[in-house]
Design a protein around this nucleic acid. Structure first.
Length: 504
RNA sequence: GGGUCGGUAGCUCAGCGGUAGAGCAGCGGCCUUUUAAGCCGUUGGUCCAGGGUUCAAAUCCCUGCCGACCCA
C-alpha cells in the first residue's frame, strides 16, 4: 500500500490544519438524535403530505423546521460558491446537507474548508425541502468526528475491482449500495432463523470448534496445535456429533449456527470456512424436518425478501432466473436419475450403466476407475440432476450405500430415510431420520473409518449407548441459502471477508 | 491441478512497438436551492514484478505474483 501520493498528502495537510486550529479531528463520541436515511424518508413523507391541496390527517414524524443532530460520512460534495451541498451517510441511508459559510461564522467556515470527502462529521441543523424537492438539513453547526486520510473509491462506478472489493470489503461497503444491502439482509436472515427456531421451542447452543476427532461428515479438516495441552486439534467439519450428545442429555430440540472448516478447494460455491445451521428435534423424523425446512425458508423469504418469488438478475439487471418458493416438489432419487439417464437405468447391468455414463452421458471425467456401481449413479445425480433442480425439491429415498450412517426406510429397505433439499441447482439442506441405535452406529462408523481406530469418536458412541431419543435432523448451508435468497451467484458475495491468498 | 481473460492516475477505463491518455475524484477560479450540478483552468504514473528481443517495450516473448471465469 503506497503511502505517498498527492491525495493522501493533501488530506494530511488538512489534518495538520485542523490540529493547528485546536480542532480534534478524531472525537471520542457524538450523540446523534436521528439517522440520516430515516430523517430523509420521514421528511419526504411530510413533503408529500404538505404538497397535497387538502392534506388528510396529521403529519407523522419529522416536519420542515425540526431540529436534528446527525452523524455520518461525507459521501458527496457539490460546491455552489456561497452555498454548498453535501451528502451525509450513515447505515440507514443518506441525507443532503446545505452549508452556508456565512451561517457557520468565520472560524467554522475556515474549519469547514479543511474537511474532505469521506470524513465523518456530526452536524446540528434544521430540516427543509429544497426548490428541487430534496429533503435537506440546513447546517447550523458541525463537528469533525473522524478524518479520512485516504481518498474513497469513485462515485460513478463505485468499486469494481473484485480483488479490492474482497480484500478491502470496507471500501466495497462504502462505495456499492447493493453490496451493503446484501449483508444487511444476511444479518436479517440470521435473525429470522433464530426467531423461527426459538418460536418452535428450540434451544440454541454453541459446541466446540476445536475437536480431537473431526466427525459428522467426510471432509478434509484443518489441523492446529494446543501448546498447553500439548496435542493436536482439528477445526470442526460439522456440528452433528456434539448436538446429538445434547439429545442424549435431554435437550430435545436443539440448534446451532456456526462456522465449519474444510481444507478443500475454493470456488464460487466453496469457502474454506462457511456457516452451517444444524437442528435436531427429538421424536421427529426426516418428514418432520422436511416440513421444518420448508416452513423456515418460506418464513425467511417472506420476512426478509418480502416475496416467495426470488429473482436473480444479471449484470444488466435482467431477470435470468426466478425461484418459486411457493411450490415444493418431492421426488424419489431413482426417478430423478431415470429422467436424465433413461427409464431402464436401474434395470441394465452395472457394466452397462458405467458404459452409458461414460459414453452416452459424457461423464468420463467424473467417474473414477475404482467407483462402485452406486457411485456411478451418484455421479449422474450430482452432475446431471442436481444442477437442474432450480425450484425447491426434496429428493427422497436415497440408496442406503450413499448414506451409510442413516436409518433404513421401512417401506423400501434399499433406501434410507434421508432427504436432500435442492434449490438453485445446489444442495441446500440434507435431512435425516437420525440413527439412535448405538450398535448400528458403531458398525457404520467403524466401516467408514476403514479400520483406523483413532478416527472413531468413542465418546460419541458411549453417549449413544446411554440412550438417544429418535430424532429428525437437518443441516442448512447458510451461505448457499443467502446466495439463493439474495440473488448472488458467488459465495464470496455473501461472505464479508472471503478467503483469498495473502498478498506478500 | 489445467485452460481462458485481466492487472496502466485515488476510481472506471482507453492506448497494444515510436513523447503516458480520457472521464470522474482532487486542487485553483466563477456561480446564494444543487444533486452523476455546470463552466474555465490545473496537479497527479515503479503502465503488477523480474528477465529477454529491439535503435526504441505499457505494447512483443519468457518466468513469477495476484484476481475473475470455465474445466478437473
Amino acid at each position: 500500500m503506497e503511502d505517498t501520493n498527492s491525495l493522501i498528502e493533501q488530506r494530511r495537510q488538512n489534518l495538520a490544519g485542523l490540529n493547528a486550529r485546536g480542532v480534534n479531528p478524531f472525537m471520542n463520541s457524538f450523540s446523534p438524535d436521528a439517522q440520516c436515511g430515516t430523517v430523509r424518508t420521514e421528511l419526504a413523507r411530510w413533503a408529500e403530505w404538505n404538497k397535497s391541496p387538502e392534506p388528510k390527517g396529521e403529519p407523522v414524524g419529522l416536519a420542515e423546521g425540526a431540529r436534528v443532530r446527525l452523524a455520518g460520512r461525507i459521501t458527496a460534495h457539490r460546491d455552489m460558491g456561497k452555498s454548498q451541498f453535501l451528502d451525509l451517510r450513515d447505515v440507514s441511508g443518506r441525507i443532503q446537507l446545505w452549508v452556508q459559510p456565512k451561517v457557520l461564522g468565520e472560524d467554522a467556515a475556515e474549519i469547514f474548508k479543511l474537511l474532505d470527502l469521506a470524513d465523518f462529521i456530526g452536524i446540528e441543523g434544521t430540516l427543509f425541502i429544497t426548490r428541487m424537492g430534496e429533503p435537506s438539513v440546513k447546517v447550523e453547526s458541525f463537528t469533525p468526528l473522524g478524518k479520512s486520510l485516504r481518498p474513497p473509491p469513485g462515485k460513478w462506478h463505485g468499486l469494481e475491482d473484485t480483488e479490492i472489493r474482497y480484500r478491502q470489503r470496507y471500501l466495497d461497503l462504502m462505495a456499492n449500495e447493493p453490496i451493503r444491502e446484501v449483508f444487511l439482509k444476511r444479518s436479517h436472515i440470521l435473525k429470522e432463523i433464530r426467531s423461527f427456531f426459538h418460536l418452535r421451542g428450540y434451544v440454541e447452543v454453541e459446541t466446540p470448534m476445536m475437536q480431537a476427532i473431526p466427525g459428522g461428515a467426510a471432509a478434509q479438516p484443518f489441523k492446529t496445535y494446543h501448546n498447553a495441552l500439548g496435542c493436536e486439534f482439528y477445526m470442526r467439519i460439522a456440528l452433528e456429533l456434539y448436538l446429538k450428545r445434547l439429545l442424549v442429555g435431554g435437550v430435545d430440540k436443539v440448534f446451532e449456527i456456526g462456522r465449519n472448516f474444510r481444507n478443500e478447494g475454493l470456488s464460487r460455491r466453496h469457502n474454506p470456512e462457511f456457516t452451517m445451521l444444524e437442528a435436531y428435534e427429538a421424536y421427529g423424523d426426516y418428514a418432520t424436518m422436511m416440513e421444518t425446512v420448508e416452513s423456515l425458508i418460506r418464513h425467511i423469504a417472506l420476512t426478509v425478501v418480502g416475496t416467495l418469488k426470488i429473482e436473480h438478475r444479471n449484470a444488466e439487471g435482467e431477470v435470468f432466473k426466478t425461484i418459486d418458493l411457493s411450490h415444493w416438489r418431492r421426488a424419489r432419487y431413482k426417478d430423478l436419475v431415470c429422467e436424465k439417464a433413461g427409464d431402464d437405468w436401474f434395470i441394465v447391468s452395472p457394466e452397462e450403466r458405467r458404459r452409458r455414463a461414460v459414453e452416452d452421458l459424457k461423464l468420463s471425467g467424473d467417474i473414477a476407475a475404482g467407483y462402485q456401481d452406486f457411485e456411478v449413479t451418484a455421479a449422474v445425480f450430482e452432475k446431471l440432476v442436481e444442477p437442474t433442480l432450480i425450484q425447491p425439491t426434496f429428493v427422497t429415498h436415497l440408496p442406503k450405500q450413499l448414506v451409510p450412517l442413516a436409518k433404513i426406510s421401512a417401506e423400501d429397505p434399499t433406501t434410507v430415510e434421508v432427504f436432500e433439499c435442492c434449490i438453485n441447482g445446489q444442495e441446500i439442506a440434507p435431512g435425516y431420520t437420525e440413527q439412535n441405535d448405538p450398535i448400528a452406529q458403531r458398525e457404520a462408523l467403524e466401516y467408514q473409518a476403514g479400520g483406523e481406530q483413532q478416527k472413531l469418536d468413542e465418546d460419541f458412541l458411549v453417549a449413544l449407548e446411554h440412550g438417544m431419543p429418535p430424532a429428525g435432523g437437518i443441516g442448512i448451508g447458510i451461505d448457499r441459502l443467502c446466495m439463493m435468497l439474495l440473488g448472488q451467484e458467488s459465495i464470496r458475495d455473501v461472505i464479508l471477508f472471503p478467503q483469498l491468498k495473502p498478498k506478500v
